[in-house]
Design a protein around this nucleic acid. Structure first.
Length: 270
DNA sequence: CGGGAAACCTGCAGGC
DNA sequence: TGCCTGCAGGTTTCCC
């Protein structure tokens, strides 16, 4: 679920709550969520460290810790990070919890057990293969166009590829492709420079709008205080099969592209 | 490199 | 009410 706008929102919410806090204890309720180091060593390696930075890279949360370690969290489809009182009910899907020196707990909740945490010396070993950040100031339309050199696959799977471009998921790819009036099965190398410029603008517009709305809550996504995002009210095509296209009134269809449920307006997108 | 399918998991909606 | 099937916003891996 969480894509770039959701992770950005979580990062913005967490930073004032976590910056400067010391981790005083760790509870691992399900060892499988610790990708590295060994789950048995995770607590010993992290307890006592101070949270010095809270950042985002792609869909990953990046916590810079004292003593040269970095904690990274990938929420995958159903993960959330909650800041809770230790007395709050544990909940059967809480996989990991960090006790903080202000008495609160940072809890990693994950219904489907896909989310992972990484504690590493060099964050590059986790984020090193990611593509560029679409919202970075220095990421211009020419940089975007250059990504398409020698790419011959369908556009949607390409945009979902995190090594191509970091942060887009199923929802925002569909929304951006609708806004750019492009069919998700179009081959990357058939897009004109003008179409690529339109897609570049659409991706950035969609992401910025969703961040302004604090993300899209359809099923699992909630902010660290339990609040929902608001962008589900502004989705133009995603999940709206059978409803009228907001631009032309044609009926929105659902297809499968690259194995993913895909929503398009069959009249606007070619 | 491209594309499809399966795998990792659990919960929920829909059909009967 | 209960059972069964299919589906889910992410990512990796295997296979052709």
């Amino acid at each position: 679920m969480p894509e770039l706008p959701e992770v950005e929102t979580i990062k913005n919410d967490l930073r004032p709550l976590l910056a400067g806090r010391v981790i005083t204890d760790v509870k691992v309720a399900w060892e499988g969520c610790v990708d590295r180091p060994l789950a048995s060593e995770f607590g010993d390696q992290i307890v006592g460290r101070r949270m010095e930075g809270v950042e985002r890279r792609g869909k990953l949360l990046v916590f810079t810790l004292s003593g040269g370690k970095t904690l990274l969290v990938h929420l995958r489809m159903t993960g959330s990070l909650l800041v809770a009182e230790p007395t709050a009910p544990w909940g059967s899907h809480t996989r990991l919890s960090f006790r903080l020196d202000n008495g609160k707990e940072l809890r990693f909740v994950n219904v489907r057990k896909f989310g992972r945490v990484y504690l590493v010396d060099d964050p590059q070993e986790v984020v090193g293969d990611l593509g560029p950040e679409p919202l970075n100031e220095e990421f211009g339309v020419d940089d975007f166009r250059a990504l398409f050199d020698n790419r011959r696959g369908m556009i949607k799977p390409l945009l979902l590829n995190q090594r191509f471009l970091a942060g887009l998921g199923n929802i925002y790819v569909d929304e951006a492709m609708f806004q750019a009036r492009l069919h998700p099965r179009r081959k990357a190398h058939t897009l004109s420079p003008e179409e690529l410029a339109g897609l570049y603008d659409a991706i950035r517009d969609v992401l910025r709008q969703a961040i302004a709305d604090k993300g899209t809550s359809r099923s699992d996504y909630v902010r660290p205080d339990g609040a929902e995002g608001g962008h589900q009210e502004h989705l133009l095509v995603f999940g709206r099969v059978g409803k009228p296209c907001p631009r032309c009134g044609a009926t929105i269809e659902r297809l499968v592209v690259g194995g993913r449920g895909t929503y398009i307006c069959p009249r606007c997108q070619e």
